[in-house]
């Protein structure tokens, strides 16, 4: 996690973010970070670790054909199909449907995540800010939240027409609970001293909300958004498996149904990769909005 944090900062700086006084900027900064990364042992260890696991996977599935691994496509089979112009099992980076599946899933995630954030953050802020509103809204939230998202599937299909809306609805719902809860905790986590200081300095309630409640809860909000992104993908894939025509979840399940196992694994790995990118984007947005935190953590050497 910490390694990713630094690299995302590097990308921001390298990508021409407004220069901060006295900090190395642009290419100089990028070089500095790159240099430091290459000197530290972590990247080598990471590469070694990943390589090691792939080697074991290869030995188990393709060399020794161990029981339980014999049906599993090995790394060579997967990679040769994935990057082949004429894939044996129909899915590779050169087939158009592969990108359709990715795009459909990504689009659904973006819509669901955007709706959940747009509703969840304000709702959580108000719930954390106003005792009375929390008393009204919290019990409902706490009753609905423990219901596993898959239990909503039939209801979602009944409630919404078509294939698209129920899937998005489920992902939104799952994200929403996480975002609301974390935002609310974020407000509650703000040290009372900041409210008192704001009061002393003559703030009106609206100003306290703007200058204390919102920035003070940002760290929790962004932790929440990362988790929310994760559960959005989780419920999206589940929903796509149950009802769908496209999307990575659908790709995985339909491959299984059609007994083509390589696209199944390609779908899984693609999910891992795309999921990682989306959560890195959220983290970068967070670092950008919380310079105060990024810089203080950097000073602590994290």
């Amino acid at each position: 996690m910490s390694g990713d944090g630094t690299s995302s900062v590097a990308i921001q700086r390298g990508g021409g973010a407004p220069a901060r006084p006295r900090a190395p900027t642009g290419i100089a900064y990028f070089q500095y970070v790159l240099n430091k990364k290459l000197r530290s042992p972590t990247p080598y260890l990471m590469a070694l670790g990943i390589g090691g696991w792939i080697l074991i996977y290869w030995l188990f599935s393709e060399v020794w054909n161990l029981p339980r691994f014999e049906k599993m496509p090995g790394p060579v089979a997967v990679i040769s199909d994935w990057f082949s112009r004429k894939p044996f099992q129909g899915t590779s980076i050169f087939t158009e449907t592969y990108y359709v599946h990715i795009w459909v899933s990504v689009r659904r995630i973006m819509i669901a995540f955007a709706i959940a954030t747009a509703i969840g953050v304000p709702l959580g802020l108000i719930m954390g800010w106003s005792r009375r509103f929390k008393d009204y809204a919290f019990p409902i939230l706490e009753t609905l939240r423990p219901i596993p998202i898959l239990a909503w599937v039939p209801l979602a299909i009944l409630m919404f027409k078509g294939l698209e809306t129920p899937v998005i609805f489920l992902a939104t719902l799952a994200s929403l609970f996480v975002t609301v809860l974390n935002t609310m905790l974020g407000v509650e986590s703000i040290d009372e001293a900041y409210f008192r200081a704001a009061g002393c300095l003559g703030s009106k309630p609206r100003q306290v909300f703007w200058h204390v409640v919102i920035p003070g809860s940002l760290p929790f909000i962004f932790t929440g958004l990362q988790i929310s992104m994760g559960v959005a993908w989780f419920s999206l894939v589940a929903a796509e498996m149950v009802s769908g025509d496209y999307g990575l979840g659908y790709l995985i399940l339909s491959s299984y149904v059609n007994s083509v196992t390589v696209p199944m694994v390609i779908g899984m790995l693609t999910l891992g990769f795309v999921g990682w990118i989306t959560s890195a984007l959220v983290r970068m947005a967070g670092n950008q909005m919380m310079q105060w935190r990024t810089r203080a953590l950097a000073l602590e050497g994290r």
């Binding site: 200081a197 704001a198 002393c200 200058h211 920035p215 003070g216 105060w292 935190r293 203080a296």
Partner: peptide
Amino acid sequence: RIVVFQNGALFPWK
């Protein structure tokens, strides 16, 4: 009447 707190209460985000 302005208070300066034991643990400090400068807004860390400003």
